[in-house]
Design a protein around this nucleic acid. Sequence first.
DNA 1: TCGTGTGAATCCTTTCACAGCC
DNA 2: GGCTGTGAAAGGATTCACACGA
Lengths: 168, 168
Amino acid sequence: MTPEQIRKDLASFGAFGKKGVGYHVAELVNNISQILGLDRKWNIAIIGVGHLGWALANYRNFASLGFHLAALFDQNPAIVGQLINGVDVLSVADLETTITSRNIQIGVIAVPAGEAQAVADRLVAAGVHGIWNFAPVRIRVPDDVQIVSEDLSVGLSTLSYHLRRQVP
Amino acid sequence: MTPEQIRKDLASFGAFGKKGVGYHVAELVNNISQILGLDRKWNIAIIGVGHLGWALANYRNFASLGFHLAALFDQNPAIVGQLINGVDVLSVADLETTITSRNIQIGVIAVPAGEAQAVADRLVAAGVHGIWNFAPVRIRVPDDVQIVSEDLSVGLSTLSYHLRRQVP
DNA sequence: TCGTGTGAATCCTTTCACAGCC
DNA sequence: GGCTGTGAAAGGATTCACACGA
């Protein structure tokens, strides 16, 4: 990225630098954090503690971005009750009550594709405002609920596209 | 997306439709697969069989996109030798020889951040052409090696940005 | 009539150029 | 001298409009 590009991008949110000096880094980080809403705390819950959910539960960068892992849910009785990264795994039966009691704003879907929409519907009904979806399906939510889907096939297709001619 | 948008996008790779009729879906899918290089087979290896690597090894969509899981590597002796999704876990000591013998073109990095660059270097030296990186660090590779990084903090920041005003 | 392919017009983003400031 | 902020110019992408074909 060019310097002008970065200046223009920042300019669309305000003027954060000092002419002739530059940007005060710590201040700029704060400003960007505010722009992204990372200055506040978000309570998240992971639904589905298979390998993927487990990996996400151990993701270290959550905290530094202001995300607090507030609950884990699974339907497998063998997993319910376990402690992962200091958080206990609850039964999905307790989804709605826990989302309310622990003030959870974001739900992370890490269940198999076939169950993803049903989980999303329950999350929305329970009052979640955002969904981070890892299941490889398109999920429908009301307009006032934000959804971000991590689609792994995009990354693989990108690799494949660039390798296509390069590799014999 | 608008219809014109899609027509223009496709037009930059050729003319795939019939005027007055539309697109023959099966044919179009084939054409797009060719454009993306998904019509050929890619052999991939996952390095790091923690929860994340394990989850990736069980990712069902690999095959349908033409990706064949050809090897798994871990440094933990307790995991080496196990069979996951029909693929045996090898010691990372065997990385170089296996990449050659199994004709692996793409390496998937699922190791902790601190080891990611070292693994990437070994993959590149062993002749891998593409790297799919899940470690939360920026990885340096030569220009002729393609790299795609899955940065989870982007998705979370996107959610946070949109929820910022909406949520009290 | 409906849908693709495509030049032309429009819109938006990036780059250039430079004033202002330390 | 070096760096930000910002109008102006240039470059790209999207939308419009329509020719063409089934």
